[in-house]
Nucleic acid binder design. Structure first.
Length: 150
DNA sequence: GCCAACGTTGGC
DNA sequence: GCCAACGTTGGC
C-alpha cells in the first residue's frame, strides 16, 4: 500500500464535490513528475485530498484509487482546455486514475499546521510546493490522520 | 495582486 | 545540450 497527496482548487473541484459524485476521473494532469506518480498508483492506495488556493490551504479529507492509470482522453480533444497534440491515442502522453471518496476530515489540517509539525518537515508538500500529485510516506500519512482526529 | 519557485520551450 | 525567456502554480 502506497500513499499519495493530490491537490485541487476547491473552486474547481472540492472534497464536497467528490463526496457528492462518490468517484471521479482525475484528469488534466500535465506535468511529467505528477504523471509518473499517477502511473505508480495501485488499486486501493489511499490519497490525501489537499485544497490549494484555499483559505486556509490544507488537507481536507481522504480518497482512494479505484481505477489505475489509463490514457487521459481530454489530451486528445482539440477543443478541450487540456488538449495536448503531443499525446496521441496510439501513444498517449498523459494519464489519469479514478478516485473514490473515503471521508472528509472534521477539520482542515492547514498548511501552517503541517509546517509546524516536526515529523512532517520532510513532506514533499513542503519541499516541492508546486507538485500536484505527490507521494506521502506511511509515517506522514499516519501523522496526518492523527491530526485529523484531534 | 504580487512574486518566488520551478517546469517547459525554443533559439543557438 | 545550454540557458534565457516565458508560463504556471500556489502561498501570502
Amino acid at each position: 500500500m502506497n500513499y499519495w497527496l493530490i491537490k485541487s482548487e476547491p473552486e474547481v473541484f472540492s472534497i464536497d464535490d467528490l463526496k457528492v459524485q462518490k468517484r471521479t476521473h482525475w484528469d488534466g494532469v500535465r506535468n511529467y513528475a505528477a504523471r509518473n506518480h499517477l502511473k505508480s498508483m495501485a488499486l486501493g492506495d489511499e490519497v490525501l485530498f489537499y485544497h490549494s488556493n484555499a483559505e486556509p490551504p490544507g488537507v481536507v479529507g481522504m480518497a482512494k484509487v479505484c481505477k489505475t492509470a489509463y490514457p487521459d482522453p481530454t489530451a486528445f480533444d482539440a477543443k478541450h482546455h487540456h488538449y495536448d497534440p503531443k499525446s496521441k491515442p496510439s501513444s498517449p502522453a498523459w494519464f489519469m486514475v479514478d478516485m473514490a471518496f473515503v471521508k472528509k476530515f472534521k477539520r482542515v489540517i492547514g498548511l501552517p499546521q503541517i509546517k509546524a509539525e516536526p515529523s512532517l518537515k520532510n513532506m514533499v508538500l513542503l519541499r516541492i510546493g508546486r507538485l500536484s500529485v505527490q507521494p506521502v510516506s506511511s509515517a506522514e500519512f499516519k501523522v496526518i490522520c492523527q491530526l485529523a482526529q484531534q
